[in-house]
Design a protein around this nucleic acid. Structure first.
Length: 436
RNA sequence: GGGUCGGUGCCCGAGUGGCCAAAGGGAACUGGCUGUAAACCAGUCGGCAUUGCCUACGGAGGUUCAAAUCCUUCCCGGCCCA
């Protein structure tokens, strides 16, 4: 087994760390307890959180003890890091629901039932902390001068939006988490994205001041895709771990579309493949980039990790049908798989194929267009294909369009597919419309 | 609390009575070229309707034939003063 820190280095996962040598020495002594926290600001984690969870897993594999923290308390306050504006606060019910989802998702990626591992919610200890205790036990150890020096605070002070006292206090809550975990779980390492570095340092300082103990921090570079956009977004929207928000098929496709330039890094950071295999996969890919072997390997690994083997296979199979060749040649069984994976709709009452069905409203229902205007625009621009063949702007759906007597495949642009299912009632089938 | 400046479409940002659904940039979408990639070129980018209507420029009122643009008031923020 190679040295863990060296391995992380090769994967490009170490952006910054507290004294590397002493951290290495501490890890060599025996199992270290480390934590990674996610705030429940949305109803699901997204692929950006995957790095941290996987990292917990990497440490676990190396014999260390991971703690996943759901920020039930910090989520109420809102982290100003990387934010140009004040956050909107979530109400209690939404927060509680989000925490439940996040906990489940964390457990899916990391084995939190293993001995030494833990899943915690910082609301459990922060919720009962009184204001006076907080001011005396935490606030007293931190100078406002230091807090003002933090980049995230500075940026907000200079912006016209300002920063509320609530968000300004955020770093103290997170620092207190570290202290609490250090006290109760002997946690000596906190990991996070580089945007968390300031918060992590605040915790390390607090532990040193209050307990005179040296604890560690490690952060990975905040990911951006090769084109400079923030990671975790496809077509402007986040890629969620929740299958209801991002279907396994869409999830799979997100990775299939990875830029060649990002392949090595993503394989290294989003999969548990040994680095030798990552290098081999990249080398194989570069032999014949047009075969997209690297993207496929990446998509299969990550989708399996998040949604399981069965879903990953189904998504891959559906992609094979859609991108393989002429969908009119596909078997009924293959189309059934596609219909499961791709967004879909069915015919409305009153829409009879024999009479010809207007395409635009169907595109909207299937989620391929945002509005009728948008749908018409796409048709006008030759952006829509029916069963793989470009559709004229006045194209209507008729009985001859049914594949295997049941399905019509619609495509927008090169890669967005949807299926019209004439064999099912609409109510049971609609599956469009995740939040943004 | 006082003064002052500001709140524009997904984001940034012009516009300061009609020619404004609102310049420009970014993002996004489609087409072309490709490898379900990148880069590049072209088009699109509030909604409904096939050249007309509706909804929009922080909220609510008002002035006017006509307001994102003027007035009143409320909410939110920056800066200065207390």
């Amino acid at each position: 087994m190679p040295d863990l820190l060296d391995d992380l280095d090769r994967r490009g996962l170490i952006h910054d760390s507290t004294d590397r040598a002493s951290l290495g020495a501490r890890m060599a002594e025996g199992p270290i307890t480390l934590y990674y926290g996610c705030d429940p600001t949305a109803p699901s984690l997204h692929i950006g959180n995957l790095i941290g969870l996987l990292l917990l897993g990497r440490f676990q594999d190396a014999g260390h003890r991971p703690i996943a923290l759901a920020g039930g308390a910090t989520g109420m306050v809102g982290d100003p890091s990387g934010r140009s504006e004040e956050r909107n606060l979530l109400d209690d019910a939404a927060l509680t629901a989000n925490v439940a989802v996040i906990k489940e998702q964390m457990g899916r990626i990391v084995d939190l039932d293993a001995p030494g591992a833990a899943l915690v919610d910082n609301r459990d200890w922060t919720g009962r902390l009184t204001l006076l205790e907080f001011l005396r036990d935490v606030g007293k150890h931190v100078t406002v001068n230091q807090m003002l020096a933090r980049e995230s605070v500075k940026a907000r002070l200079e912006s016209e939006h300002g920063i509320s006292f609530t968000e300004f206090s955020y770093m103290l809550l997170q620092a207190n988490d570290y202290l609490w975990l250090h006290d109760h779980h002997a946690c000596d390492l906190q990991i996070g994205g580089s945007d968390q570095w300031g918060n992590i340092l605040a915790g390390i300082d607090l532990v040193r001041r209050v307990r005179s103990d040296t604890v560690h921090g490690l952060c990975w570079p905040l990911l951006t895709a090769a084109d400079g956009t923030k990671l975790g977004k496809t077509t402007g929207a986040r890629v969620w771990l929740d299958a209801r928000l991002t279907s396994p098929y869409a999830f799979f496709q997100h990775w299939m579309r990875t830029d060649d330039a990002d392949l090595r890094r993503f394989l290294a950071q989003f999969t548990r493949l040994p680095m030798e295999e990552v290098e081999a996969a990249v080398a194989a890919h570069e032999e014949a980039p047009q075969r997209r072997l690297g993207q496929r390997a990446l998509a299969e690994h990550v989708t399996t990790l998040v949604h399981g083997v069965a879903e990953a296979n189904a998504a891959g199979e559906a992609a094979g049908v859609l991108f393989g060749g002429d969908p009119r040649q596909a078997s009924a069984a293959a189309l059934a798989v596609v219909a499961q994976e791709v967004p879909g709709t069915s015919l409305e009452a009153g829409e009879a194929l024999s009479g010809g069905v207007e395409l635009a409203p169907v595109l909207v229902r299937a989620g391929l267009a945002a509005s009728l205007s948008d749908a018409r625009r796409q048709l006008q621009h030759q952006g829509i294909a029916v069963n793989g063949a470009k559709a004229a702007p006045d194209r209507q759906l008729g009985p001859d369009d049914l594949l295997h007597g049941r399905w019509v495949l619609l495509r927008k642009g090169k890669r967005d597919w949807a299926v019209v299912d004439a064999g099912r009632s609409r109510a049971a089938h609609d599956s469009v419309g995740p939040p943004s």
